[in-house]
């Protein structure tokens, strides 16, 4: 096994195990910390695919900004394992798990047959995911969606402030 394969399996196991722990752990703070581990593992996958820009953006935006926002809200509400609403209905617990596992089974079974000639994903090669190339495309072909997204951010900011403001 080459170094790339070892890293792939290591990051995959890390991502899936910590994703399971996000769902399974009782305390919301632990869930958030496990989700941060998952995002770092996915960033590692991006680096393995030589998509360096997305790896950095994933760490900064997801692990850096979004998860800190989650952590901030959880600590503001002072949530812990005791204040966690218990899932009283055991049938929902079993039914949800079986439904999700069936979805995984059906999708894996369906997609196993479609890929007849196994395509190899290029790892460690290509300069498509580098900042130079993506920056050029973002500010030439995709400059209009880029500007629209700034309007989206402005409206989201105003919306968040208006919603979370105390009623006068």
């Amino acid at each position: 096994m080459s170094v790339t394969q070892i890293l792939f399996w290591l990051l995959s196991v890390l991502a899936v195990c910590s994703a399971v722990m996000v769902v399974a752990s009782k305390s919301p703070v632990h869930s958030i910390l496990f989700l941060i581990i998952t995002f770092f593992a996915i960033s590692g996958h991006y680096i393995l695919l030589n998509a360096q820009f997305l790896a950095i953006v994933n760490i900064i935006v997801y692990a850096g900004a979004i998860m800190v926002l989650f952590l901030f809200v959880v600590m503001l509400m002072n949530l812990n394992a005791d204040s966690e609403p218990p899932q009283k209905n055991k049938y929902i617990l079993f039914g949800g798990t079986i439904a999700g596992a069936s979805l995984l089974l059906v999708l894996v079974a369906a997609l196993k047959q479609t890929v007849t000639t196994v395509q190899m994903v290029e790892t460690n090669t290509g300069n498509v995911g580098l900042i130079e190339n993506l920056g050029k495309i973002l500010f030439t072909d995709y400059v209009f969606p880029f500007e629209i997204s700034s309007v989206l951010f402005l409206s989201a900011m105003i919306g968040a402030v208006v919603i979370s403001k105390k009623e006068a």
Partner: peptide, 14 residues
């Protein structure tokens, strides 16, 4: 699928 299972079985909105 892990995400789908989490949405189905958890009751905590966060």
């Amino acid at each position: 699928s892990i995400g789908v299972i989490g949405v189905l079985i958890r009751r905590n909105a966060i």
